Computed example of a mutant assay.
Amino acid sequence: MTPQQFPAPIDVAGVYDGIGQIYGSAWGPNKHYGYWENDADDSSVEEATDRLTDLMISGIAAQAGQRVLDIGCGIGHPAFRLVRASDVNVVGISVSHVQVAKANELAAEAGLADRATFQFTDAMNMPFPDGSFDAAWAFESMWHMPDRGQVVAETARVLRPGGRLAVADVIERGPVSPAGRAVLDHICANYAVSSLGTIDEYRKVLADNGFVDVEIRDISDNVGRTLDLMADAVETVRDKLVDLVGEEQATSLIDFMRLSAAAPESGYLFLTAVRA
């Protein structure tokens, strides 16, 4: 079965302010993949998504009082967990006004508004001074960036020397079969993705921008069940998705999740690096 192609959304904000809202209502507050230790791990979606957040928290190893940049912050739940776990100050950025407003609202409700703030900012052109953050992470946001190299360069600029970076991202894994290419193309066509990165690309762009001690793990097997479970969840709110995009595209989007879950070309990495 080949996923049907549809016109790409206007921009990243359009994805998360549209179908992303529906996906989130079915999936839960952590709008990202989950991490399971192995096939026998029966952790809930909430436990698995928290576990992936905890992996990111350990990756940046931020110390109390430090300032952390959250690149592509969503509505803030991973940032809130980071603040509570490490007693840091987080600045989250997003190109969705809806996400920024909701994240600041949730921070206030949680009593964290003094340590977690969110603003509308383009990650490829950040308004922050050089060396103004102690650590940074990009949690499933890099795949949306039109120029990942520019984002890495900007991140290197705003990080102090010795500052740590952690990235969790959907990637392309080769070799790519024709069926796998159809799945990857569907991702790009429907989720405001210019292209999917590879492990080799990440190694090069990090080295080119002064990052050292780069460690990259392919965790595709650990996160792989996410899309099947998400498809099941979205089926429960299928009527809302149909109202937004129509029956044909709703069917295609749900089918795509299952196809992507089974496609070895659709991978996932976790990396850490240090700003030299």
Rank of each mutant, 00 (worst) to 15 (best):
P3Q: 09
F6V: 08
P9K: 06
D11H: 11
D11C: 07
A13M: 00
A13H: 09
D17G: 01
Q21L: 14
Q21Y: 09
K31A: 15
H32E: 06
E37N: 15
N38W: 03
A40V: 15
D42S: 14
S44V: 07
T49V: 07
D54R: 14
D54Y: 14
S58A: 15
R67Q: 13
D70Y: 12
D70H: 06
G72Q: 06
H77Y: 14
A79V: 15
F80V: 06
L82I: 08
S86L: 04
V88S: 00
V88L: 03
N89V: 09
G92F: 01
G92I: 02
V95F: 02
V95I: 15
V95H: 06
S96H: 07
V98Y: 01
E105V: 03
L106I: 07
A113M: 08
T117H: 04
T117R: 14
A123E: 11
M126C: 09
F128C: 06
F128Q: 11
P129Y: 02
S132N: 02
F133R: 11
D134N: 12
A136G: 00
W143G: 01
H144P: 10
E154W: 02
T155D: 05
T155V: 15
R157K: 09
R160G: 10
G163T: 07
V167S: 11
D169V: 01
D169K: 07
G174H: 08
V176H: 02
V176T: 10
V176E: 09
S177Y: 07
V183G: 05
V183M: 08
V183F: 06
V183T: 10
C188W: 13
A192K: 06
L196T: 01
T198W: 02
A207Y: 03
A207N: 12
E215G: 10
E215K: 13
I216T: 04
R217V: 13
S220A: 14
D221W: 14
N222F: 03
N222V: 04
G224P: 04
T226A: 00
T226Q: 11
D228N: 12
A233R: 11
A233L: 04
V234M: 06
T236L: 08
D243Q: 12
L244H: 13
V245W: 10
T251Y: 00
S252C: 10
L253M: 05
D255P: 12
M257T: 07
R258D: 10
A261I: 13
A262I: 04
A262V: 05
S266E: 08
S266A: 13
L271G: 05
V274Y: 02
